[in-house]
Nucleic acid binder design. Sequence first.
DNA 1: TGGCTATGTGTTATCGATGACATATGCGGC
DNA 2: GCCGCATATGTCATCGATAACACATAGCCA
Lengths: 357, 357
Amino acid sequence: MKPSTLMEVAQRAGVSTATVARVLKAKGYVSNDARSRVEAAIKATGYRPNAVARGLRKQRSFTVGHMLTAITANPFFVNVAHWAEEEALVQGYKTFLFNHNGSAERERLGVERFIERRVDAVLFTNAVDSRNVQLLAEAAIPVVQLERAATIEAPSIRVDNKSGALEAIAHLVEFGHRRIAFVGGDPDRINGGDRHFVSVEDERLGGYREGLRRAGLSLDESLVRLGLYYNIADGGSGIEGYRHMKALLELPERPTAIFATCDILAAGALQAIYEEGLRVPDDLSIIGFDDTLAANLAPQLTTVAQPMEDLGRLGFRAALDAIEGRIVAMSTVLPTRLVVRRSAGAAPYLKSLSDGN
Amino acid sequence: MKPSTLMEVAQRAGVSTATVARVLKAKGYVSNDARSRVEAAIKATGYRPNAVARGLRKQRSFTVGHMLTAITANPFFVNVAHWAEEEALVQGYKTFLFNHNGSAERERLGVERFIERRVDAVLFTNAVDSRNVQLLAEAAIPVVQLERAATIEAPSIRVDNKSGALEAIAHLVEFGHRRIAFVGGDPDRINGGDRHFVSVEDERLGGYREGLRRAGLSLDESLVRLGLYYNIADGGSGIEGYRHMKALLELPERPTAIFATCDILAAGALQAIYEEGLRVPDDLSIIGFDDTLAANLAPQLTTVAQPMEDLGRLGFRAALDAIEGRIVAMSTVLPTRLVVRRSAGAAPYLKSLSDGN
DNA sequence: TGGCTATGTGTTATCGATGACATATGCGGC
DNA sequence: GCCGCATATGTCATCGATAACACATAGCCA
């Protein structure tokens, strides 16, 4: 049978809807007699509150929208979305996901759908086009941006990409590496080159440069390889990382270590290395970023983990704060964490020294 | 400004709400004069239909719920969910995801949330407890089961696991393998041992057995390793596959090929193989299942691909058919497809023969 | 006894879109 | 001049929960 209504429960219990409502939200005066009759009626009818009607009346849908770039290609998005949803759940909310594959038009479509659904707020993980964020601001729907710098329209929660990169480089330097390659996203190509936001890519590259400087190493531009993180079209394979690695291995003076700013790129690089018959970390060290694929690769990848759970949970909480009119910090920066596994080790020349002992 | 209402548009255009409605859905008689005034008013106010109000009035929320087991651990679920959502989108629907991590209680919670949200139907990918499916049937909400056999309560769409396994074994046999190990899910442990559904695990194991029989190979029980696919608790690592592989490598007579019924298990196995310093496919061949991680592993994995897009799209379409009272096939079985990459090759003894040439 | 508070319950407008139904005008045909 | 039909537009109840408000009754104090 269809779920019954408040009215039906009221009739069955011989009271008015107001009394049923008072029992349901346990506030206001209700006699014990009425209460037990209502409770019995609720049980008998299998009553469940209708969230749609409630949404209309309260002018709150208790849903938030979550815009994402590449849910099938990059597990990073899945994790952030999962934890945002998890936090939403305990607060009586549900999230709607919308995947735009990096297209500004699709993102726009998603924003329109969200407005029609009357979501109470929207989370953007990796916003593409700032006009879409603005569109929501105009509709008086609060926005929280994840992995993007704050804009006038919306606060942001992000990760300290630069120090993450610094930590990775320092780790490699400690192992004696002096030729460290950078394989990462190209700030001019990611997201169609929209530079309205301070770029994650810029920061990671900046951390790499700074890390070399601190170690007294000079920068060799031939070791810096920029491109896309993954090709969404082909299901998100790490083909880009593979190509970069191939090119690096053909260099007259090969790097001894690779810093890849995405586990997917690292995975592609590992494929190229495998093909060449080289071993990690014996012949070559590699550090990834994100901690998504890392634990599933061979060897398990040392990587700079992003706090995906915090990103998701705090993201939702900030959205809720905005919905309820509380103050929201314009900018929150979360730390990364270097997860040491098995892909980074002593530089080969050091190894041969110790082998010689 | 907040999105305005039909009423506001009507007032601004100097007509009734009925006329605005007629313009919006382009049916009924409207004079050109009225039409252009309404259109202008819509533009001026930035009117967007309110899906919540519409849902209440039409007694249809234009949402479907999607129950999933392990969205962060297994990309399979993400893909199915993505394509179901994609299909929903073109039909004017949105999906709500609910992740239960294989827990029947969480699944129950999700069902209750879905009922409260008044979803028009529910997709179960890998249902845990058949009572939860029943709960929806009682609430008159149509259900479609993905990757599960049909039950009295709900039709199903699934994959021909047995012939997928058969194809994998045949492929290995063609390469001359005679000792083929099976690494897969334990039917008694997956989903807390609920055997109310015909099991995916049974079918894959059955395909393996049948495949050996067809090739005239005898079954060596020591080569059959059953367990979990992944540990959700530790973020879905392939540690189980690693352990199985370690054990297989310690056997007095090692297998020359592995059939792992999940890419995650295969990934774990590859880690163990890597650790031993063995090469794939030179020393050992391996075939996975799902085509999720496959393209990101080193070497790229030959695997039995599941038609995740079809599963998702057809799943949603079946749900929509049920919603709209059309007939829905009780059982739909989709083919798998062997994706040949680089992890399966000639058995080592054949290789040494040809090397000797 | 009047007025006050605590307790208990019912009535009704509202949220926004929808669709059934009512109403009104104009024109052609008989 | 009236019927019938096409054209054009408006009114209103409805979906289900909510909350403001009104209305009771009882007990207690001054």
